[in-house]
Design a protein around this nucleic acid. Structure first.
Lengths: 225, 225
DNA sequence: ACCCCTATGTATAAGCA
DNA sequence: TTGCTTATACATAGGGG
């Protein structure tokens, strides 16, 4: 039973997270519906689970609420809405071509190309999407692998990940001094910043503290922070 | 005080309705934030009061969530209403629409959705693409960050990476016995396989061996292999 | 509107079926 | 997954500043 209040942090246990998601999602949608009924409010609620499933609710029509939201926030035109306008004065192929262009650009950005004009927030968002994608790809990969091959494949994948972290770390170290030099408007006390590692990787061939299994005689520690 | 549960119907008394709106609105937004944090869900919530005031919340960016929502429902519309496309199947738009579909599928796969029919090789290729993308995104992110913010941002990114590894590890542990059980044609001796970690993560709040810098009092080691 | 209060209803974490 | 149960935490109606 509920012996303790849970901390509002990402739930690490996947099963617990899914159960909590189901329960709280239902509660949230119920509350949203109640609020719209009780107080005659216009509400739109969109929820994507971490697995990518979509749940939504709207007191009237989703498009209507979103449209109203866009007007209020005086936002830029939604990329979805031009279909309405384009259908009026352009051909259907123009819409499709436009969509191809949009998706092509997004694909290239997910591949790490065409990142030039992006701001920090957009980059963060990209990163998060990539992290989520890779996580699910990894899990699926384990599923389709045979159990006997599971471990070695997973180890290899993790080694590639380590390689990537090391590569980024190397790159960071190489550029650290340059970045420091261009610091603008911020006095930031850094003792030995030039030679400091963001990621410290230690590779010791012999296992120090009695590991239960030794798959290929190398233990690797990534020290974060 | 509350002697009776209220009926879920529009509150006629204007004052009471506004008070209830204030209270319940806050509760709703709190719940939405909690759900997005706890379960790593992407959420957009838009509320218009009966007086026309706008309140909104989004776990990432409103446009992003709406765009994703539009894409999902767009796909459904395209699938449910092929008449539009079929009318134009001789024209260029048919080709363009086909391309849109291809790119949409690839986008979804990069996001880790729709992975079901894929083989191991395709998954490996996806993973490699994602690794490459994330590496370049990380580098670009550091470039656009100010040096003074560089470290904390990088630390946060690495923590997310750790989250992902932990999540995969959790998942692996949970499925380890099942995978073992379905092992085909291999007698695989495993002493305590059910509780064995592919990745071992140790979190000790106090720094043990005099680290040069302590960013937020947590040293994290990822042990691979 | 907004805060505080308190009694009460509701949501939900954890466990088990 | 899905539901059911129970103890507890949380939300909130109604009232007064």
């Amino acid at each position: 039973m509920v012996r303790q209040r849970i901390e509002i942090k990402k739930i690490v246990n996947v099963t617990a997270r899914q159960v909590t998601f189901s329960k709280r999602r239902r509660g949230l949608f119920k509350k949203a519906k109640e609020l719209s009924t009780l107080c005659d409010a216009e509400i739109a609620l969109i929820v994507f689970s971490s697995t990518g499933r979509l749940f939504d609710f709207s007191s009237s029509s989703m498009g209507q609420v979103i449209e109203r939201h866009n007007q209020q926030t005086e936002n830029l035109i939604q990329l979805n809405q031009p279909s309405l306008e384009l259908q009026l004065d352009n051909s259907a192929s123009a819409i499709a071509i436009k969509e191809v262009e949009e998706r092509t650009l997004e694909l290239r950005r997910l591949r790490g190309e065409e990142l030039h004009g992006l701001g920090l927030d957009e980059l963060k968002k990209l990163e998060k999407t990539l992290e989520g994608g890779i996580s699910r790809v990894l899990k699926t990969k384990v599923c389709v692998s045979f159990p006997s091959e599971m471990f070695e494949k997973e180890i290899a994948a993790l080694k590639r990940k380590e390689d990537r972290l090391m590569e980024v770390n190397e790159w960071l170290k190489q550029h650290a001094r340059m970045q420091m030099g261009s610091d603008i408007g911020q006095t930031h006390e850094q003792g030995q910043s030039s030679d400091q590692s963001i990621i410290t990787t230690t590779n010791n061939g012999s296992s120090a503290a009695a590991p239960p299994q030794d798959y290929d005689s190398s233990d690797t520690y990534l020290k974060l922070g």
